[in-house]
């Protein structure tokens, strides 16, 4: 059992590292880095389940019987694109926030907002 699932456990640890960075850190850029680590770990989860022992890459060729599952690969290709789209937009927002508030620290921004009210 230990050997059969260790891969998923590593993925869980990675996911949680990313997730922790997102919610615990106050720096906007770092949050986005965390988010992308979180997402990449989910990709690893999908790709790991596609692997078949003794299989090869899903490109049809003579003399190969066992292929890994292509479907998760397709899903993750899409998800990677979604991930970079989110990262780009998040960074653009961070840049604008820096211009508007002069800071990219959550606390400073919150403080300035409270002053506005």
């Amino acid at each position: 059992m230990l050997m059969g699932l260790y891969n998923y456990w590593i993925v869980v640890v990675l996911m949680m590292v990313g997730f922790y960075i997102v919610i615990a850190h106050g720096n906007l850029i770092k949050k986005i880095v965390g988010l992308s680590i979180f997402q990449t770990s989910v990709f690893i989860f999908y790709i790991s389940m596609a692997k078949v022992e003794g299989g090869t890459a899903p490109i049809l060729a003579e003399g190969i019987r066992q292929y890994s599952n292509p479907l998760p690969h397709v899903l993750i290709l899409t998800a990677i694109v979604v991930g970079i789209a989110t990262t780009a937009l998040g960074l653009a927002l961070a840049v604008r926030i820096k211009e508007a508030y002069g800071s990219i620290e959550e606390e400073d921004i919150q403080k300035k907002d409270n002053l506005d009210c």
Partner: peptide, 15 residues
């Protein structure tokens, strides 16, 4: 190493 060559290609260029 997980046989996902297409994904690897994309992740390398994007990630």
């Amino acid at each position: 190493s997980m046989d996902a060559v297409d994904v690897a290609f994309t992740e390398a260029s994007v990630g």
